[in-house]
Computed example of a mutant assay.
Amino acid sequence: MSDGTYTYYDDDTAVELALLRKEVMPGHHRVILTLHDLSIGGERLTVWLTLGDARRMADAIEDGTPFEFVDPSDDVVSVEHGTLQTKISVICRSFLPDGEEPSRLSVRLAGVDVVLLLAELRTLSGRRVAPPANHALDTARVAVADMLGELTGNRRPKWRVIITDSESPTGIAPVCTGERSDALHTIPDFPGGPKRDDEGVYDCCPWPQIETGSTVMAAYLVELLNADTEGGDA
């Protein structure tokens, strides 16, 4: 854990960012993020984050994704990403007189300053938590891969939506890679000329061919299975 307070000064805005971890009661800690306008009469805005929220903020900085957290006082800290820059903002909305606009301060960081801020957040809040392993899913994935290897010759084939007896694209099946697939998957007498029939089922098409009863579900399952296929070998 860091000793003392981490600070970063934005020369362009004359705003200082400070991070400090504090024990608010035995065994309970908060990360305090403060933006302080160091110009004459400048404001100081503070947000208190739980360690979990500070970790999520660090994740957003590392992943280049937006982040927003509202603390119990209704004050907000946000992370935005621009071209080669990361912007940290605090909006103070607590204890505002009627009709008064919230106060807002921001700092922009780039390059090594982003790396140092990320390292400090990780030090204060803890390392990124890996998602728990899903052994049941891993076992099922291997079993299906074995089955598909026997049926199609490919343990992780690409999938497609198919039109089954419902006469609607409500089914799913592995993409056909049969020897005469291109010739068979063609509607020769289609108005305007022959047309590729990507959703049709022909003698060359492999099993399994699964009816879902829903065009939405079929499209979703195809996306899900293809995303899983791209994730690596089972």
Rank of each mutant, 00 (worst) to 15 (best):
T83W: 11
I91P: 06
P66S: 05
P66K: 14
T164Y: 05
A133W: 07
D98Q: 09
R196P: 07
T65V: 14
A183S: 09
H28W: 09
Q209A: 06
C204T: 10
V222I: 01
E100Y: 06
S2A: 05
M25C: 06
R128I: 12
V24A: 04
D10V: 13
Y220E: 12
G178C: 14
A227R: 09
S94K: 07
R30P: 11
M1L: 01
K158T: 05
G153L: 05
A218T: 07
C176M: 12
G52A: 07
Y9R: 12
Q209D: 00
L17I: 07
I210M: 09
D197P: 12
T139I: 09
E68Y: 01
D63L: 10
P157G: 04
P72H: 14
H29Y: 05
R160N: 14
S214N: 11
I88Q: 06
A130I: 03
A227F: 08
D197Y: 05
V112H: 00
I187C: 08
V161A: 07
A14H: 11
T215C: 08
R56L: 14
P194W: 00
P169Y: 13
D203L: 01
L118H: 13
I187T: 09
E80L: 13
A18W: 00
M147E: 00
E120L: 05
E120V: 07
L221Y: 09
V115T: 08
T212M: 07
F95K: 10
D197G: 14
I210W: 14
R44P: 00
L105T: 08
T34A: 00
E23T: 02
W159I: 03
V114R: 11
G64P: 15
R30E: 15
L151M: 04
V129P: 00
T139R: 14
W159H: 03
E150Y: 04
T177E: 09
V70K: 15
T186L: 15
A183W: 08
A133N: 05
C92V: 08
V142R: 05
L33R: 06
G64W: 10
R56H: 14
E43I: 01
L225Y: 08
V70I: 15
E179Q: 08
V31S: 01
D165W: 11
L33H: 03
V90C: 13
P132E: 03
V114E: 11
V201I: 15
L49S: 10
E167Q: 13
A140L: 02
L118C: 05
I88C: 03
D11W: 06
P188Y: 06
A234Q: 05
L109V: 10
E230D: 13
R30W: 04
R122Y: 01
D10S: 07
G200H: 09
T164H: 03
Y202C: 15
A219K: 06
R127T: 01
G193F: 00
D10G: 13
A58R: 02
D11L: 09
R30Y: 04
S166E: 15
Y6R: 07
R127Q: 08
S106H: 11
I187Y: 10
L17K: 11
T34W: 01
S214H: 09
L35I: 02
S94T: 10
D203S: 08
C176D: 10
I40H: 06
